[in-house]
Design a protein around this nucleic acid. Sequence first.
DNA 1: ATTGTGGGCGCG
DNA 2: AAAGCGCGCCCACAAT
Length: 860
Amino acid sequence: MKRRTRQQLEKVAVITESPDDCRRTWDAVEYIMEPLEERYDVTRISVLDTDPKNGKAATKTEIKNARDDVIGAIAGFKYVVIVGNTPLQVITGKAGISKLRGRPIKQDGHIFLPMNNPGIIRHDDKQETLLNADLQFFDDMVKFGGIPEAKDLHFRIVMSDDDVEEMIADLRGAVSYDIETTQLYPWQTQKLNDRTGEWELNPEPKIVSLGFGTARNQWCVPVNHPQSPWTQDEVEEMMDRITEKRDDFFLIAHNGKFDLLWTWVHLGVKWELDFDTMLAHFLLDENMRHGLKYLAQVYCGAPDWEIDLTEKQGMNVPLKKHCKYLAHDLYYTRKLRYVFGKMLKDDWEVKRVFDKIMMPCANLFVEIEYDGVFIDMDQFGEAEEVLREQYEAALAELEEWEPDHYVKKNGDVYYFKDARRKNDPTRFNWGSTDQLRWLLFDHLGIEPLDKTDAGGYSTSESVIKRLDHPCTEALLRFRAAKQQLSFFIDGWKPFLHQQSRGFYLHPSFKLHGTVTGRLSCEHPNLQQVPRDPRIRSLISAEKGWTLIQCDLSQAELRIAAELAREPAMIHAFTHGIDVHWLTAIREIERGGGLKDLVIGTACRIKGKNDMRYADAIQVLLEVGHEVATEVEKEWKEYRKKAKAVNFGYLYGMWWKKFKIYARDNYGVNVTDEEAEASRTTFFDNYAALPAWHKRQKKYARRHGFVKSLSGRKRRLPEAKHADDTPERRAAERQAINSPVQSFANEVNLMAAIQLRKEYGRNVVKICGTVHDAVLFRVRNDMVEEVYTRMLEIMQWPDLMDEFDIEMVVPIEADGDLGPWGKSISLEKARKVADIHKLSVGQLLDKYPVSAIQEQWKEAA
DNA sequence: ATTGTGGGCGCG
DNA sequence: AAAGCGCGCCCACAAT
């Protein structure tokens, strides 16, 4: 019986790296060999005769030598599974399993299917889904008798007026939408020609095609493809007609923010997206990747339909092939919506985050990116000039210590006068960490102070500051100027977009950018603009408008206090005491230090000659850091220090790191004992924190995830591990940090959504969010109203009630107006406006914020 | 010529 | 025994 069954099984070969791989070792057998052996007559072939020593990868020679044997061994097998990178290299001669896995390779009469080595599951159990998808695909392939063709689906290329009518009539129910474009940034930019010194326009970005996926068809409209019959006007007219029908269908897209932004910029119609499959999947599993093809493979068993980038960009590809690709995008986007829709239904809390925060944000950020941020080009030019001077000056000073040669890590000697390097061919490169490392620690013989993660000697700012050598000061100036130039001057130029009212940047926000739910930002990254006013104030507003920044004050600390139910913190927040200040004073009190400063400041505040230490501490706590700082400037530094301490300890920092922090940021050398005591004191002062930490760890360990107040999940599979590994520790720290970081960001997003809801784009243009702050421009006549209202909104956005959130700790918000980094408070603006007998709006129309600041100083 | 990685550093 | 979290960008250098 058994024998007969076996003969009917298809013969397949499995190539592994070594004899032990996937056979005797751990759990891999269960993942690959057993499922295959159930269905096939499996022959296993290994590339190497024995396991590589010490778990090392096979060498190139070994791979080369193994080739003939392996090729011989698979003779007669049509279907071959490749397990891991080494066998892949043997067969294809190329590495890159992560890119090639899941994609069948036809070669010499065989069909190979590369997949990951199941050992990866030990490090990342998410990989199990992928492995199963690959095995499933292998089954499909064998059943089909070859590589399953990318399906023709039912794609229709819209070429005639009749097609248009039919398409528009078909737009009902759930409709997916996708476009193909020539590039990613939808605005035309310019670049400086190095030879002529002239500004030249970059190629015009274009929509190549767009399409709609319905229940029966995938409609593909060629827009700028050479074979397109349509003019720009005709396409726009088509889109207008669809806009009129927009309420008749449910719009789905994968990363729809991209498609809708382009559609708005290039075709003039602005649509609201109903369901974003990428964002849905992000909420369902933030640890996985969210690419359409990957998800279609994993959740729908889709074949690979990827084509070359140039073909996607459409110009040199037959229209039919291009549209077939688009059709697959449309088909699987629509399919994934049902899969993820169902998964969301099973988790109402996550669904609520999706419906009320994620999708509204997806639509909001289309507008945010469309409006962009205004750049003050006069300041931009000035900043560039100043930074170039600083850069040149620092470099000139460094010349004194430039060596004529450099010994590379491998021992090669490198003479600069002979070398041909990209920028300055004959010069020592101070920007190269390798060269600098050699110069400082080998050539000059300075004692290295720290190592990098990879084990080399570090040349970080922290180290250089502590080195006793005359070059260090200029070196730090060199690095700072170089970085600011390359990040924010040269780095921004390729994104500057000229419009009638001036130049704009359009940073792109990734709503799925971080595992906690914070957004990330790129092209360029608005969220890493230095606080240095020279750079930050480049971001401003066009004439007649004013930039406003509103931020949640100490949001994370407030949320932590709430979650931990920490009495001392809650008391501080409900009584308007600054927690960073509280920490600073308690820390000083613990050591009984700074007697002169503490008593001196308190006496001057109270107008007394002497006071007991304990009483003085009490006075300082009561008056707050602002009053204390007015009397004695030093207090500002102590508060700043405490701020870092608060966050560090709150999220699990250990005293050793505190030592490093104190040294690098405050030049204070704390002893081990002092550092340990500081941590102990922190948890004595905030005694409910350890219990909260414990609760979070326990919860994560039991469930494998934690939740924020909104119900958003952070999945932490490592927290479930039985052994106390560094990975589990890391997961436990994230279990503490994540709900706090998540929720602070969510409050901020709720506020941004509401701001847009209450004011139209003719009054407010939102520029972006920076985790706990919203940046927006307001028409001058509305500045007072919008600013005041936004602070109210931030303190308790309406969505907080919709989520049934209750908090005992009050949320507070703060803000200011004017160029970023050179802004003033509304109070100041009001005072100056009163002097002129003007409204704040009129004042802002009449004077730049810098002048208002000056006038306020004179008046005060 | 492109692609990947480490080092360093900007932000919250 | 060992312990903040979350990002993106630019450069240099090595590898493909």
